[in-house]
């Protein structure tokens, strides 16, 4: 048989063996059989040197072509077999639960507070802060609510015991003058005392009322206060900002209503009701959500601002109330129990 006639049958036989190899070991054996140093194909190639000058080019071309083909087949079959080997013996059950990682969650009150802060910051407000332990002056007097003012009735206040150390009864000494702030409005005074107008702040924070805990009360709760003082600030500006913020918070279809009301530190004062799919779900067209008004000139005088030059407005609302309405929570105490099943939901 001529050299050339041997190439094709040997190649076919090698290809068949490579393709038929059932696993990687058999494949390796087949490779050694043909392409190894003592392999049959290698032996054929070694004969190339014995051929005449005329035969060599054609023979070389044929044998090299065949080698390339064999090597390609080897690589392809190896790839197939390697994949097969990598497969687990039993198929994976993709319905089994995965190994879960825990992503902690922010407390719902934090989330609502952050949403409120984000809405206000869009329109130029910055966050301010103040102490929770306050004096009568900042919590009441400076806010135009003197000691004998009936408006103080509405806010039952926690006072701090006078002496350091042991507990003391409020009756026994003179009226203690430090208290837990009943509203974030005290920060209005603190900020205005410290910085000249204009002022544009919001103040989220804890406040305290002497109420026993029940579904709608907790001695500790959160408020957000907004204060804007500038030249030529109007009731129209107050409405514009309140509407913007509540639409951001409660959805664009939210409607806002202002009703005249009374707060000692604003004049005129309003209560704010809102109406949305949420309130209708609760069976109400309007739901009270916040209080607001134009800063009382007396308050400006108390902090040394000239009410003839500066006007402003303030408003405040409860964060728990917003969260309860938004998420449909019916018991305020849930916020302070920190039940993981509760925290996980937000």
């Amino acid at each position: 048989m001529s050299f050339l006639d041997q190439v094709e049958p040997l190649k076919q036989s090698a290809l068949a063996e490579l393709r038929a190899a059932p696993d990687l070991a058999a494949l390796e054996q087949a490779r050694v059989n043909y392409l190894g140093s003592n392999g049959r194909f290698t032996a054929l190639m070694k004969q190339l040197g014995t051929l005449s000058k005329e035969e060599k080019p054609a023979a070389g071309k044929a044998v090299n072509g065949a080698k390339v083909e064999l090597e390609a087949s080897l690589v392809a079959r190896r790839g197939e077999l390697e994949l097969k080997a990598a497969m687990p013996t039993e198929p994976t059950d993709f319905t089994l639960p995965g190994r879960r990682r825990v992503l902690g969650k922010l407390h719902p009150l934090t989330q609502v507070t952050e949403d409120i802060v984000r809405s206000f910051r869009k329109i130029g407000f910055v966050v301010a802060d103040g102490p929770e332990v306050e004096g009568e002056y900042h919590c009441f007097d400076a806010l135009n609510t003197p000691a004998d003012h009936p408006a103080r009735d509405a806010q039952d206040t926690f006072y701090l015991a006078k002496a350091e150390g042991g507990m003391q009864n409020a009756e026994s000494g003179p009226q203690p003058s430090t208290l837990l702030r009943t509203h974030t409005s005290s920060v209005q005074i603190r900020v205005m005392e410290k910085q000249p107008p204009p002022v544009r702040i919001i103040v989220p924070g804890r406040v305290y009322r002497r109420d026993n805990a029940d579904a709608t009360h907790n001695p500790t709760f959160h408020q957000v206060e907004g204060l804007y003082v500038d030249r030529n600030v109007t009731v129209g500006d107050l409405k514009g900002t309140v509407e913007f913020v509540f639409k951001e918070l409660m959805g664009p279809e939210t409607r806002i209503r202002f009703r005249p009301h009374y707060f000692s530190y604003t004049e005129p004062s309003f209560e704010i009701d809102f109406s949305s799919a949420l309130t209708r779900k609760m069976g109400k067209e309007w739901l009270e959500i916040a209080g607001c008004g134009m800063v009382h000139p007396q308050v400006f005088e108390n902090v040394g601002y000239d009410p003839e030059v500066w006007t402003g407005w303030a408003f405040g609302f409860g964060i728990e109330r917003i969260a309860m309405i938004r998420y449909g929570i019916t018991d305020i105490r849930l916020f302070y129990e920190n039940d993981v099943r509760f925290l996980r939901q937000f």
């Binding site: 130029g124 301010a128 900020v191 544009r200 600030v233 514009g240």
Partner: peptide, 20 residues
């Protein structure tokens, strides 16, 4: 009637406060 006062879009000074 406060409902008859048109709302004006937020405007005016940008706030500053160290706590921000």
């Amino acid at each position: 009637g406060v409902d008859r006062i048109p709302a004006t879009a937020p405007r005016g000074a940008i706030g500053t406060n160290a706590y921000d």
